[in-house]
Deep mutational scan, measured.
Amino acid sequence: EETYEVDGEEQLKKVEKMLRDRNLDVEVEIHNGKFVIRAK
């Protein structure tokens, strides 16, 4: 499992696309105004 923490939606979209391109399962949560992306 990998976890990424990003600020802002633009970064979120980039990271999310990169992970989905690797066929990973992606979950996004918001913690303290930051996006936390978990990939399995």
Rank of each mutant, 00 (worst) to 15 (best):
E9S: 04
T3A: 09
E1D: 12
E5H: 09
E1P: 11
E1F: 14
E29S: 14
K34E: 01
E27K: 11
M18P: 03
T3V: 15
Y4Q: 02
I30Y: 14
V15P: 00
E16F: 14
K13R: 14
M18T: 06
E1M: 14
H31W: 10
I37H: 00
L12S: 06
N32Y: 05
E10M: 08
E5D: 05
E29L: 12
E9T: 09
D7G: 05
H31L: 13
V6N: 03
K40F: 12
G8F: 10
E29M: 11
V6E: 02
Y4N: 01
K13E: 09
Q11F: 07
V6L: 07
E2T: 11
E2I: 13
V15Q: 01
N32R: 04
R22H: 09
L24R: 04
K17G: 05
K40N: 08
K13L: 10
V28W: 07
Q11I: 08
K40G: 05
Q11A: 12
K34G: 06
E9W: 15
L24C: 15
F35K: 02
L24E: 04
A39G: 08
L24I: 09
E1W: 15
A39C: 14
V6S: 02
E16H: 08
R38N: 04
R38E: 03
V28Y: 05
D21H: 05
E5A: 06
N23K: 10
M18E: 09
D25A: 11
K14Q: 12
I37G: 00
V28E: 00
G33N: 06
R20T: 08
V36P: 01
V36E: 02
V6D: 03
T3N: 06
Y4G: 01
D21M: 07
E29P: 00
E5F: 13
E27N: 07
E27A: 09
N23V: 02
K40P: 05
I37T: 01
T3S: 10
K34S: 05
R22D: 05
L19G: 01
G33Q: 02
F35S: 01
G8Y: 08
D21R: 04
N23H: 12
A39Q: 03
N23T: 02
V28M: 03
R22M: 13
R22A: 09
K40C: 12
F35D: 01
L19A: 00
E9M: 13
H31K: 13
Y4S: 01
D7Q: 10
N32L: 04
R22G: 06
E10H: 06
R38Q: 03
E2N: 07
L19H: 02
G33M: 02
K34V: 10
G8C: 15
L12V: 06
L12I: 04
E2M: 13
Y4I: 07
L24S: 01
E9N: 07
I37M: 00
D25K: 13
E27H: 13
V26E: 00
E9K: 08
T3K: 10
E10N: 04
E1H: 11
R20S: 10
R20G: 06
G8E: 08
V36Y: 11
G8R: 07
T3R: 12
V36K: 05
E29H: 12
H31F: 11
L12A: 14
E2K: 07
I37Y: 01
G33R: 00
N23Q: 09
F35I: 10
A39K: 02
Q11P: 03
L19K: 00
E9L: 14
E29K: 08
R38W: 05
E27P: 00
K40W: 14
K40Q: 08
N23G: 15
V15Y: 11
V28T: 03
M18V: 04
R20C: 13
V28R: 00
G33S: 01
G8H: 08
K17A: 12
L12W: 07
E16G: 02
E29T: 14
K17T: 08
E9R: 08
E5K: 06
N23S: 08
F35G: 01
V15H: 02
Y4K: 01
G33V: 00
M18Y: 12
K40I: 12
E16S: 11
V15K: 01
K40L: 10
D7N: 08
E29R: 09
E27I: 15
E5P: 03
G8A: 06
A39E: 03
L12R: 10
E16K: 11
A39S: 06
G8I: 06
I37D: 02
E2A: 08
K13G: 07
V6R: 02
E10T: 07
N32D: 12
E10K: 04
E10P: 02
V15D: 01
T3Q: 09
K34R: 12
I30A: 07
L19M: 04
K40E: 03
D25R: 13
V6Y: 03
V28P: 00
E16R: 08
K34W: 07
F35R: 01
E1R: 09
G8M: 05
V26G: 02
G33H: 06
V28F: 05
D7V: 14
V36T: 06
K34Q: 05
E27Q: 13
R20E: 05
R38D: 02
N32S: 03
D7P: 04
R22T: 04
K40A: 06
D25N: 12
E27T: 15
L12P: 00
Y4M: 03
L19P: 00
K14I: 14
Y4D: 02
T3G: 05
I37W: 00
A39Y: 09
K13F: 09
I37L: 05
I37F: 01
G33E: 04
T3I: 15
M18N: 04
H31P: 00
Y4E: 02
D7A: 10
F35Y: 13
E5I: 15
I37P: 01
E2R: 09
I30T: 07
E27F: 13
T3F: 14
N32P: 01
E16N: 03
E9P: 11
E9A: 08
D7L: 11
V36G: 00
R38I: 10
L19Y: 06
A39H: 05
E10S: 06
K34P: 00
G33I: 00
D21N: 04
Q11G: 08
T3H: 09
G8L: 11
I37S: 00
E10A: 08
G33Y: 02
R38M: 05
G8P: 03
V28K: 00
V26H: 04
K34I: 10
I30N: 08
I30G: 05
E16W: 14
V26P: 05
D21K: 06
E16T: 15
A39F: 10
V15G: 00
D25Y: 13
T3C: 09
K13V: 08
L24A: 04
V26L: 11
H31A: 10
F35E: 02
Y4R: 02
E29I: 13
Q11M: 13
A39I: 15
E29C: 08
R20L: 12
K17H: 05
A39L: 10
K13H: 11
V6G: 03
L12Q: 02
R20D: 04
I30M: 10
K17I: 08
E5N: 07
L12D: 00
D25P: 03
V6F: 07
V36N: 01
I30S: 08
E10G: 03
D21I: 03
D21L: 07
E29Y: 14
L19F: 12
E1Q: 11
E1N: 10
N23M: 07
N23D: 12
D21G: 04
D21S: 09
V26A: 05
E16A: 13
E9D: 07
E1T: 12
V15E: 02
L24N: 03
D25V: 14
V28N: 00
M18R: 03
I30H: 11
L12M: 13
D25W: 15
K13W: 11
E29V: 12
N23C: 13
K14V: 11
L24K: 06
E27D: 09
A39V: 15
E2C: 12
N23A: 06
N32H: 07
Q11W: 11
D7C: 15
V26F: 15
F35V: 07
V36C: 15
E2H: 11
G33K: 01
V28I: 13
K13Y: 11
K14D: 09
V26T: 04
D21P: 00
N23P: 00
R20V: 05
Q11R: 04
K17N: 07
E29D: 06
L12F: 09
E29Q: 09
E5Y: 15
N32Q: 07
V36A: 00
R38A: 04
K17R: 08
E10L: 06
G8W: 09
V6A: 08
E2G: 08
